[in-house]
Design a protein around this nucleic acid. Structure first.
Lengths: 146, 146
DNA sequence: CAGTAACTGAAAACCATTTTCATTTATATT
DNA sequence: AATATAAATGAAAATGGTTTTCAGTTACTG
């Protein structure tokens, strides 16, 4: 955590952004949650530590933090935007519990052979992919069957 | 196309929905486009054939057609909602050109071994996945380098 | 052909996000 | 430490996509 915060500071500075308590608050909220949070949820939580923060500022902080690669935006089914801490891993994907919203990261997607096949068949130059799994975590499976 | 329309009628009836010219218009627009269209774009095109249709009705038609599995909703980056004809294939994915929006379907994703690995590691019961590739189609590559 | 529930269109409501603008603040400079 | 200034903030208003409401219309059943 300390690491992340240090890193954040250096990244912000390096790109000419300022380190404000609001941005710190937003980042901490996201860092301390394992779920993906909507802007409104982030706002609610950030307010507990920093009551004067405005929703607008949360949106702006999310934009900046996203631009810096510190957090990432997700598009999961219904509600379109939600944010999650970007783990150091870089390229990765999500396994999302449809019950409680828990998110597990994984990186080993190995879609290269599929990519090659698609390139050959279509002539597309493939630049990226979006891969997310949906399911039920252990806990929610238990609740389901109860 | 005729096939799709016949099928649509039977599916609608079977589930207690009515076949209205508006729904037909929306479905035809989506069926006749290879791109994924936003509700607004669908509205514009539907109006050409059926000038009295309202945007609200387009939204409602999309909801129904989606529920019936005739079209599918996509979440691609920026603009959240867009719709595409569901091809008969059933389970499939999209390869999307970031230049012109062309969409190519493919079905052979073969993520089963990855799924198994994830299940073992996490205890999740995996129920589905979202996989989309992004890239540049042949045409847009040409334009890019021009 | 009549009855009825489903459907439609228009306007209004809603809600998330963005913009505007006056004020405040983090940071670099003295 | 004090100052200058560009960046950031908060509040209010604007925006824009989506949903709801409601009165009138229409597809289908009998």
């Amino acid at each position: 955590m300390r690491f992340t915060e240090q890193k954040m500071i250096s990244i912000l500075r390096h790109r000419g952004y300022r380190l404000t308590p609001q941005r710190r608050a937003v980042l901490r909220v996201i860092a301390s949650s394992h779920d993906h949070l909507t802007p409104a949820a982030i706002y609610e939580r950030a307010r507990q530590k920093y009551p004067d923060i405005g929703l607008v500022t949360v949106y702006r902080a999310l934009e900046v933090l996203g631009k810096l690669g510190l957090i990432c935006e997700m598009h999961t089914g219904g509600d379109c935007r939600s944010y999650l801490m970007r783990r150091p891993s870089g390229h990765h994907h999500h396994l999302i519990c449809s019950g409680c919203g828990e998110v597990i990261d994984f990186a080993d997607c190995d879609l290269s052979s599929l990519e090659q096949r698609l390139t050959q068949k279509t002539g597309f130059k493939i630049e990226g992919h979006l891969l997310e799994f949906f399911g039920r975590c252990r806990n929610c499976q238990r609740v389901d069957s109860a």
